[in-house]
Amino acid sequence: MSETLLKVSNIETFYGPIQAIRGVSIEVKQGSIVTVLGANGAGKTTILRTISGVLDAERGEVSFQGQDIGGLTPDRVMRQGICHSPEGREIFPFLSVAENLMMGSFTRSDKDEIARDLEMCYGYFPRLKERAAQRAGQLSGGEQQMLAISRALMGRPKLLLLDEPSLGLSPLLVTQIFEIVKRINRERGVAILLVEQNAHIALKTADYGYVLEVGRIVMEDSCAALMEKDDIKEFYLGQKDSGARGHRRWKKKKLWR
C-alpha cells in the first residue's frame, strides 16, 4: 500500500513530573485520514503538541518522511510540511481574517500559488471571504474554527493536524466542517491526523483510528472495524443504556490491556 508519512514510535511525554503520554505509537500513511479518539485528558492534544515540537518526547521517536523530527522547534517542523490547527483555535485576534491567512503562508514565497490557495480556502468557507477585512477576534467560534483550519491549509501541508475541530460547534456546522475536511483530503491529497471526542463523526470521516486512554493506545483498527466493536459502540458512540456503564467499563478496560 501507500507509504508511511508520519511515524510516531513509543513516545513518552511529560508535563514536568506528570507523564501525559505513556508509550504511544501512531502511523499516518500518505493521503489517509487517521483519527485518535479519547476522553478529556486522555492525552490527544499532547500527542499533537509532541509531533509539532512544542513538547519534546522524553523517550521514543517521531519521524516524518523517514526523517527524525523529534528535536526540531515548532517552526522547523512546520517547514517540513506539518501544519497544525490547534485546540482552542489560537487565531491572531487583532489581525484581520485575511492577515491571519497570510500568516498561514508565512514560509512560502510563491505568490501566485498563495493567491490560488487563498481562493481555495474562501471556496471552502465563503463566510471567511465575507469577513476578510474583519478582525479575527470578532468572529464567532465556528468562524474562528474555519479560520484556524484555513490558516493551516495556507501552509500547503503534507500532513494536517486537526485538534477537535468540532469543539463548541452546532451539529450542522460539525457536519459541514467534516465534509470539507474530507474534501481537503481527497482534492488536495493532504494526509490528516484528526483528534476528536466526537467519535461518530471522526469514525465516519477517517480511514483508520486509534483509541487513547490515559496516555496509552488501547485499541487500533480501520474505522469501519472500530465502528462495529462493542466497546466503541458503548463508550464512544453511546449506544447502550447508561445504567450498566460503570461496571462494564471496568470489565472491558481489563480486557483491553
Binding site: S52, V54, T73, P74, D75, M78, R79, C83, H84, P86, E90, I91, F92, P93, F94, L95, E99, M102, M103, G104, F106, T107, R151, A152, G155
Partner: peptide, 18 residues
C-alpha cells in the same frame, strides 16, 4: 504583520513557521 502575530499569539506564530 508577522511581528504583530508573534506579539499576539506566540504559540500560533510558531505553528505558522514563524
Amino acid at each position: 504583520v508577522a511581528m504583530q502575530a508573534a506579539s499576539q499569539n506566540q504559540l500560533a506564530a510558531y505553528y505558522m513557521g514563524i
